[in-house]
Design a protein around this nucleic acid. Structure first.
Length: 823
DNA sequence: AGTAGAAAACTTTTT
DNA sequence: GTTTTCTACT
């Protein structure tokens, strides 16, 4: 297999640059005109500082130190909004302008494609089109792929290896588990996948994993399964995400020459979001940095939110130890947010232990600055409604929707906002969300392409062999599999051979040989046909497009659109292999949406962004902090959730608006909720508790005998470092919850005295919606009741507080007793 | 072989 | 509430 086009070119160009070697690149090669590099060059005879002032101007002393300390290890602790990206990009500009290295000799690593793209754009500002020479600016994964493509054979792969997505990965693991004769229900592929992932994140190959962990899975067969899986991958000439790093590390460890080559190549290394690196990434960097130690890591321990996928905050905490003589620069001057927002965020994050500790400050002294607000609502629906209203109000005051974001903890929260905004006709865009490439139709299409490009890609073949339906069922496929296994050949090869025999039923044989022939034909066309055209032909001739055209379901047209979009985006690439790689690594599609729209996204995907106004809904115990984080990771989990909260608040420039709802639907049933403990951890002087306009919320409360669940006293003066579980507000909230369940029996009567739309009572609201109850309902079978949505009906069955009602108009429904009234 | 209907499982975050 | 997976039927 040859090197896919697009790589070989890069490589020779880089080699050329590399061979020319150090410090004095010929001026002729410099980007034409404009950039600072040229100007710096011109000013070279004069004082370097004068020339430097161009791009160094406007940096504060700390930033400047971070930029100018180019030799030796540097750790930049950059708090939120302190100009982190600016430092990184200026530093690169500085290295280039001072002729210390060629663009191709700088390794700049980010985590997301977005970050890489952004960095590239910003560097282009300084050096013009010369950025294109920065071949080694990218995500960890994309850089690893680039390296592996050139040395694949040394780690048991061929250069054209394919990169598996999670879907393929799971199917392959399932096969491995089955082959071992294990119960797939007891040992699911999903469990195995996360286990393997965690091993790979720690840089462990099958032989390295601790015996205990190896034994814990699959009746003690963990290690064997892992080895088996890796074997299958290498037979398939494929790598999963974790492999990209792992193989790279193996390569560096086993091939000193190769490592040395890269060590010399990368004269300067920069790592963004260092707090998110996992052990494997750390090892990788360590190996490269052994050459020269010109490593600059930028990060913020307070924004480490990816511990669940193997990120080691420890990497950043340990930096000085790992890289002796490291210069540590703290960036604490915040240029983004008002002092209220900073005050709230800093006070919150101060509740975490085990942080390097930074104190953000700002010069912003705007007397008009708005305090961070905390508001409450009856339920999540009303939360969406109220936030929608606030956004409309902002809009009518001339605020741009692009400057407004809603940041949620979990993606299921997004739907309610979408629903509401659709009703309001408010423009919104969901960022993150289900990825384009993850959609079934895109995957199917990609599987076709993969089969054409990589005949040995069994997983792709399996995916499309009977999509669309060709009458190739289990029985036929079993034969193909058996032959493939027996002769150690790829499935496609086995299928081809099988078609020449009489083993298959005539119908199946015809179908299979048609497919095989088509694949061969397309492969032949690959050479001389434009890849986007060929792609269209493949989808048409395979009957795949037809399949969706005939599909009468609501999604079908959208899927066809997606396929068109896929073909269209293909045109931007030189070749089919190049495109396949792009899809595997760059999961997000560019939504350069110009339209004015509110952004809706998760807190995780909001990292690195900023908005004038940020809405933070769903600050409730169990949701945020998320129950699972607490259950699985205890205190560390809580601290990570708190960092997430910190990230959320610090996204705001001018306004941060926190919300919580008293009731939320989780897993389909209503659950009452109590306010997040993080609310207790906000400092009173920067926070304003807002009276909910609709008065459902439990926040300011009142009226309920014996005190209010979480009102007034939430911000009682107290020691800020006290254990959060014992804060007055937290305890009170818990007491209120207990009181609530005891009183539960009474409340249907209270409830029936009013309709839902009028009730101002706050605590009652919390109780009403409790759907899980062993207290018997006060209703009786046969009673005639009224439901706000379904109208009148008669109760046929009662189970606890769940009623089955035969409605006159709506038919039989199961509803919670609190939503009906006697009639 | 394929489909329809029902039960079961699953819902944190993602390169 | 939704999606996936299994089972039973055509």
């Amino acid at each position: 297999m040859s090197v896919p086009p697009g790589f070989s070119d890069d490589w020779s160009e880089i080699d050329a640059a590399y061979d020319q070697g150090p410090a004095q690149p010929a001026p002729a090669h410099r980007p034409q005109g404009g950039g600072i590099a040229a100007r710096a060059l011109a000013a070279r005879q004069g004082t370097p500082q004068a020339a430097a002032a161009d791009y160094l101007a406007g940096l504060n002393p700390e930033q400047r130190l971070a930029v100018e300390t180019v030799d030796g290890p540097v750790l930049v602790l950059a708090g939120a909004g302190t100009g982190k990206t600016r430092v990184l990009t200026t530093r690169i500009a500085h290295i280039l302008a001072t002729q210390r290295a060629w663009p191709s000799q700088i390794l700049a690593v980010t985590f997301t494609n977005k970050a890489a793209r952004e960095m590239k754009e910003r560097i282009a500002h300084y050096i013009g089109p010369g950025v294109e020479g920065m071949a080694w600016l990218g995500t960890f994964h994309s850089i690893c792929v680039k390296i592996l493509r050139n040395h694949a054979e040394l780690v048991g792969l061929k250069s054209g290896f394919s990169i598996l997505d999670t879907d393929d990965q799971l199917r392959l693991m399932k096969q491995v588990i089955q082959a071992e004769g294990l119960d797939e229900k007891r040992w699911t592929a999903r469990m195995f996948a996360s286990l393997v992932d965690s091993w790979k994140n720690r840089g462990l190959t099958p032989k390295d994993i601790p015996e205990g962990e190896a034994r814990a899975f699959g009746n003690g067969k963990g290690r064997k399964l892992y080895a088996e899986y890796q074997d299958r991958l290498s037979v398939l000439n494929a790598a999963d995400f974790g492999d990209l790093l792992l193989h790279c590390i193996t390569l560096f460890k086993t091939q000193p020459d190769v490592l040395k080559d890269y060590q010399r190549r990368f004269r300067y290394m920069l790592v963004d979001e260092y707090q998110d690196t996992n052990v494997a990434q750390y090892l990788w960097l360590r190996l490269l940095a052994q050459g020269n130690s010109n490593v600059c890591c930028v990060g913020d321990d307070d924004q480490s939110i990816y511990g669940w996928r193997g990120a080691e905050v420890d990497n950043i905490l340990r930096f000085e130890h790992d890289f002796p003589g490291a210069v540590v620069v703290r960036l604490e001057r915040n240029y983004r947010s008002t002092s209220h927002i900073l005050g709230a965020a800093s006070h919150l994050i101060a509740h975490n232990e085990g942080r390097l500790g930074k104190t953000l400050f700002t010069d912003d002294k705007d007397p008009e600055a708005e305090a961070v607000t905390v508001a409450s609502s009856w339920d999540s629906e009303e939360e969406a409604r109220a936030i929608g209203e606030e956004i409309e109000a902002l809009q009518s005051k001339g605020h741009s929707l692009n400057q407004i974001a809603i940041l949620v903890r979990a993606s299921f929260q997004m739907r309610e906002f979408e629903d509401r905004f659709v009703t309001l006709g408010l423009n919104y865009r969901v960022i993150g969300g289900p990825r384009f490439y993850e959609r079934a139709e895109i995957r199917d299409a990609m599987a076709y392409f993969r089969c054409v490009v990589q005949p040995a890609d069994d997983l792709a073949f399996e995916r499309i062999v009977n999509t669309p339906k060709r009458g190739l069922g289990e029985a036929s496929l079993k034969l193909v599999h058996e032959l493939a296994r027996a002769s150690r050949i790829p499935l496609l090869e086995a299928a081809t051979q099988l078609c020449r025999t009489e083993e298959l039923k005539p119908k199946a044989r015809k179908a299979l040989s048609d497919l095989v022939d088509s694949l061969d034909r397309w492969r032949a066309q690959l050479v001389h046909m434009k890849h986007s055209e060929l792609a269209e032909i493949i989808l048409d001739e395979s009957g795949y497009t037809e399949m969706w055209r005939l599909d009468r379901s609501a999604e079908a047209p959208g899927r066809l659109d997606n396929l068109k979009e896929l073909i269209r985006s293909m045109e931007e690439f030189e070749s089919l292999p190049g495109f396949l790689e792009h899809i595997a690594l760059v999961m997000d599609r560019d939504t350069a949406d110009a339209a004015d729209a509110v952004s809706i996204m998760t807190l995780h995907s909001a990292k690195g962004l900023e908005f004038d106004t940020v809405f933070l809904p769903g600050w409730e115990e169990g949701l945020f902090p998320h129950q699972r984080a607490l259950d699985e990771s205890g205190r560390a989990g809580l601290e990570e959730e708190r960092r997430l909260a910190y990230v959320g608040i610090t996204r705001a420039r001018k306004r941060a608006k926190i919300w919580f709802a008293s009731n939320r639907r989780i897993h389909g049933s209503w659950q009452s909720s109590i306010p997040s403990r993080f609310l207790d951890e906000l400092p009173e002087r920067h926070v304003e508790v807002v009276e909910s306009s609709t008065r459902y919320g439990g926040y300011s409360g009142g009226g309920y005998g014996g005190g209010n669940a979480y009102g007034v006293s939430r911000f009682d003066a107290r020691d800020p470092f006290q254990n959060t579980y014992s804060t007055p507000g937290w305890q009170r909230a818990q007491r209120a919850r207990e009181a609530g369940s005891q009183d539960h029996g009474n409340r249907s009567d209270m409830r029936s005295s009013r309709t839902r739309a009028q009730g101002p009572l706050t605590i009652e609201g919390q109780l009403v919606a409790k759907s899980v109850s062993d207290t018997p309902s006060s209703f009786t079978v046969g009673e005639r009741v009224f439901h706000i949505k379904f109208g009148y009906g008669r109760i046929t069955t009662i189970e606890g507080n769940k009623l089955t009602i035969d409605f006159e108009k709506a038919g039989e429904k199961r509803v919670i007793d609190s939503f009906v009234e006697r009639h």
